[in-house]
Write a protein that binds this DNA or RNA. Sequence first.
DNA 1: AATAGCGCTCGTTATATTTGAGTGCTAATA
DNA 2: TATTAGCACTCAAATATAACGAGCGCTATT
Lengths: 344, 344
Amino acid sequence: MRQVAVSVIKERKNKILSAVINQYAKTAKPVGSDVVIDSYNIKLSPATVRNLMAELEEEGFLTHPHTSAGRIPTDKGYRAYVDSIMEIQDMAIEEEERIKQEYAQKSREIESVLSKTSKILSGFSQYTGFVMAPKIKYNAIKTIELLPVSQDEVLIILITNAGMVKHKRVGISLNQQQLTRLRNFLNDNLREVSLADASARIAQEIKSFKQNEEELLSAAEEICDIFYDIRDDIYIDGASNAMAISDENDFDAIKSLIRFNEDKNKLIEIINRDFDSGGISVQIGSESSLDELKDLSIVTNAYNDGDRAIGVLGIIGPKRMEYDKMLSLVSSISKALNEFLKNR
Amino acid sequence: MRQVAVSVIKERKNKILSAVINQYAKTAKPVGSDVVIDSYNIKLSPATVRNLMAELEEEGFLTHPHTSAGRIPTDKGYRAYVDSIMEIQDMAIEEEERIKQEYAQKSREIESVLSKTSKILSGFSQYTGFVMAPKIKYNAIKTIELLPVSQDEVLIILITNAGMVKHKRVGISLNQQQLTRLRNFLNDNLREVSLADASARIAQEIKSFKQNEEELLSAAEEICDIFYDIRDDIYIDGASNAMAISDENDFDAIKSLIRFNEDKNKLIEIINRDFDSGGISVQIGSESSLDELKDLSIVTNAYNDGDRAIGVLGIIGPKRMEYDKMLSLVSSISKALNEFLKNR
DNA sequence: AATAGCGCTCGTTATATTTGAGTGCTAATA
DNA sequence: TATTAGCACTCAAATATAACGAGCGCTATT
């Protein structure tokens, strides 16, 4: 019996919490007791709502900018709200349809698909969208080709089984025969090897060269460089939407955000945290423990190649975003990308 | 005699004009008559300076934000000032040295050299730096390679004589023999052909295929796509510096600037105007006739491959920049890039 | 336990006042 | 005739004052 009573009270408080969060998402102004009652058909008196909001504040879900102002959600409040959205709603059918249309003009280049996906995320959310390319450590080598471009230069072409193509010029002067031998050596020993392990593998197998093949030896070492150059790549779009986010002034916030967007490494670090989680994930404000992001939330979802998670995509928006819509957006797009990667 | 007198007067006015411009560059506040006298050792009374400034205003070189404020330069004022800097000063030797150091860790990839150059421009100017890659119409084909990546897909690799590498996957299923024939056909007919003309050339030479080589024919058409995909490429860095430019508020200006930075095509259009000029060139504020740039100036310099101008680089900064320094920066870097391109 | 009522707080907005930088003009001066 | 000193005037920006009202917390009531 008490159990039920408690649950009813809880229910009522939750309703108020989400009313505040939704209202604040719309107006960006502190939410007063009256508005909660009017707009979210709660059949309680203002006084009661005030009491409950006071309790919610004591428990850390809401705050007060100043004495006589309405309530705004804390990070903890957002967290509770987000956690309570257990099941991701399906998107409106028309939206789903539009996303599919966007994917329809498919390209064979995985790079352009990822770039497109990032643009889609940004376009639909009106925030900043990003896609981290398949992580190199889960990207295995499919083929390596060596094209001579001049007397003493060779273009290395690297194709991974995720379909990514990397190339690099290095200065090595070998004759056609030596080149072919090196190429075969590389392909024989590196096929299916992860990019992260390739250097080590070359070092290990290089012993098989004979003494008199010194040129080949040094060339192979040269080639190792390409693997060091490869970093986890990331596509970011709609950074200018950041301007629209902060409702006027708040100059410094934007400044640091714009700067943040230019520094891809930081973002990579942040979203890598969500990589292992596999599914959808939200970092709210200071949860990221990065000062630049204290007023922002990041919604991410890992995507997979049908086998295992290989990358992460998502959006960055203001803390007061419409989490329900954004969660379903990110989730849908990640599914769409999964689909695409499976069918290629 | 009068000639001399006139020239003296002019001289004096010019001195005031550049005093105002320099002071305004430092403080971003309207410049009054007193400051001009104090800081630029002009031995005239405030009243006289006021008279001369009034004349300069009548002639359109200065304006007034409001009655009781100092003067600020107009676009015409800047233009006169910039034009009067006839000879580009040499850079401080240490600066020159630092630039050379930056270039020292040279890479063989022209792409990374250009990207680096853009970062250098941004870093030294503290504004936005950009480098437009060698224009495609001056970029000739050096080699084309076709690598089969699966049953029905081929990776086309295109190397230009400027050293750029482009690649694209297309869906064509040919056997090894056909592939070799196609490759030879392409190389025989396209070597030294400009990227801009390549499609037309293929269409022209394709007749030589026999009737029974329909697969080859359609494959060749497929390959034409790669040439359509190639656009003049541009590297932009330090867009976030734009924030530092506008001294607080001016929110909308920044907004449009950030947006401008995301749209590379507009910038390409703007700087293409300076391409033909060959040398160094400045667009001040509304001279670009683009509203987003009305408070900004663009300093550009074409660079060449020892033979002819092939691209443009430069910086975008506030109208009230230190033109002397920026002109010499852009000029030096363009020389450095010329040097690099010649010695490769 | 829920609510009505009321006084209090404090940010916001509006209005008035002061300040001072810098002008333009006129009359004196070299 | 060109320059300068002097002074009244203007107007943005800073400062001060007042009025407003949204929304709270608290207490007494149902």
